[in-house]
Each structure stands twice: as C-alpha cells, then as structure tokens.
Write a protein that binds this DNA or RNA. Structure first.
Lengths: 145, 145
DNA sequence: TTAAAGGTTAGAGCGCACTCTAAGTCAAGC
DNA sequence: GCTTGACTTAGAGTGCGCTCTAACCTTTAA
C-alpha cells in the first residue's frame, strides 16, 4: 500500500543525487529513513514530500544551517509550535524578496549596457555600409566599456 | 585632476573588501592598477567604474570564470568586438531571468505553507478561547508539516 | 553460480569565492 | 630616531555544499 521508494527513485523524483540524499540525512535535514531487512533505505510518501519541500527552501537559497533549525522544529514539535516555524519561513520569504529585488536592480544596469552595445553595433554597421567620413575608432570613449 | 583613490577608498565605495580587490586583480578580473612611487595602488575613476560594473555581474551571480572571459574581451578589444560582449551579457541576462523565475516559483510554495501555518494558528487560538469540543491534536495530518 | 547492479558506511576531496597570515616596505607625526 | 598605520606580496586557510572513494554487502537475472 505505502509505496516504499529506493534512494534512486527519490533521487530521480527530487533531482537531488543519492549522495546528497544521504548527506542530508547525515546532517539531520532528513530524519532517519526506514530500512528494508537488508539495511537499504526505503522512503515513504511522507519522506518524499518533506524532501521536496526542503528542496524548495534550498532552491530559494536557504542555508543548510537554517534548514537544520527548521527541521529540528518540525521534529521536536510536529503538532504545535507553528508560530515559530511560520516566523522562520516569513523571514526567509523577506530575504528572498530582497534578493529578487537586488537581482532586478543589478540586471537593469546590465540591460542598459546591452542596449549600449546594440547601439554601438548599429553605428558600426552603418559606418561600414557608407564610406566612413569620420574614423569609427572615435566611437569609444575610454575603456570603461 | 584625476582623483586617484587608495585601495581603502575603493573598498569603501564598492563594498568589496581590500582583500577581494587584490584577489580580483590577481585573477585578472581587474587589469593591473597604477601605482604610486611607493608601490601602493592608485585607482582611477575608470578603474572604479569597471569595478562597480564587475560588482553588478557578481551580484547577479555571474561566476568568476565568466567575468574573466568578459574582462579578457574588454581588454583585448576595447574598441570593437561589442557583438561578442553583448552576447555574453545577453546570455547572462537570460540566466538571471530564469533564476528570478525559479525563486518566484519556489517562493510560491513557501508562501502557501506560511498561509497554512497562519490558518493552523488561528484555529488553535479559537480552540483555546472556547472549550475544545474535539481534541486539537487532530489538526495535524501526518508529519509532513 | 556467478556477474552485474545497486545498496551501505566513514571519511577524504573538491570547487568556489573569498579571507587571512606572515613578513616586509614606506610615509607621516611625535 | 621611532612608532604607528596603511600598504605590499606569496601563499595558506576557511566555509559551504556537495561529491566521490574504498571496502564491503545484497538482490536479481542469466
């Protein structure tokens, strides 16, 4: 009934490597996984859901330390203490929003530069089609390009 | 006339450490900086602009390897080859946009969880104000929280 | 029955981007 | 003259997040 997954299957499903899955378990991001009689890990559907959520945290840049804290909260108070967990997620949320903002701000400068290069290319092309009146080298102003 | 800056001043202005500034020069992200008679670095306004732009690339997550390539292009063809440079920036731009998209997607799941916790807290508060009819523990369904 | 495929562990190694250290030079102020 | 403090270098060390290795065990299919 419970579809018990092998470490390979979980790796496939989550995009994490089997190495990483074992590593996460070792550093308590994942609670000890059930074993088959032979000692091999058998992941439950719940385990998979948890790992998938961990992965969201990871992909939004949460450091392992923080994920460890969060995991510890979930493990120690699975049925209460939502407030503290929510706080953690909300403060992480703010950090991610700030990061997105910073990416966008800095990207704007890069966009501006791309635009600048486009214009230089157009001007350069024009000066190649029509015989150059002025020396095209005068286009560049300093080496800050 | 040219305001020659010390490494300290550039560090202040850019937010990079003096260590990092020397490190960037060592690995050719920054062309060799002019020196005072005593051998101390003296940064020009142009140097500063370049470092500030580098910093934008860095803050948008461009790896040092790529910045090295870009810097090499600028150094080898300061007055031409805009096309290649523009290509690099555009492909980086796409990568950053994809990254922002991924952050937003994953953040949506985290937001959903925050919402979920909020609701649990409200329900929990209610059940504390009015005498509990059902055991509040029944709120949690599994440990995938 | 035997080979291949997949699992286990403890622990070492890696790539990145810094960050720091040690030993020395130099300029300014007391 | 001497101390203080900012600078120089080459090279070592750090923290993060994996990633791999070696030696061994189990399951499966031919």
């Amino acid at each position: 009934m419970e579809p018990e997954l092998t470490i390979q299957q979980v790796a496939q499903a989550t995009g994490l490597s089997v190495h990483t899955l074992r590593y996460y378990e070792r550093c308590d991001l994942i609670a000890p996984i059930g074993r088959s009689t032979s000692g091999h890990r058998r992941y439950s559907a719940n385990d998979l859901r948890w790992i998938e959520f961990l992965n969201k945290l990871r992909l939004t840049g949460m450091p392992i330390r923080q994920m460890q804290q969060y995991a510890e909260l979930v493990r120690s108070q699975p049925d209460s203490g939502f407030h503290r967990r929510r706080q953690m997620l909300e403060s992480h949320r703010e950090a991610v929003l700030a990061q997105i903002q910073q990416l966008q701000d800095n990207l704007a400068v890069i966009d501006w530069k791309i635009q600048h290069y486009s214009e230089l290319e157009v001007t350069l092309n024009d000066s190649l089609k029509t015989p150059p009146q002025t020396h095209w080298r005068s286009l560049s102003k300093g080496e800050s390009a």
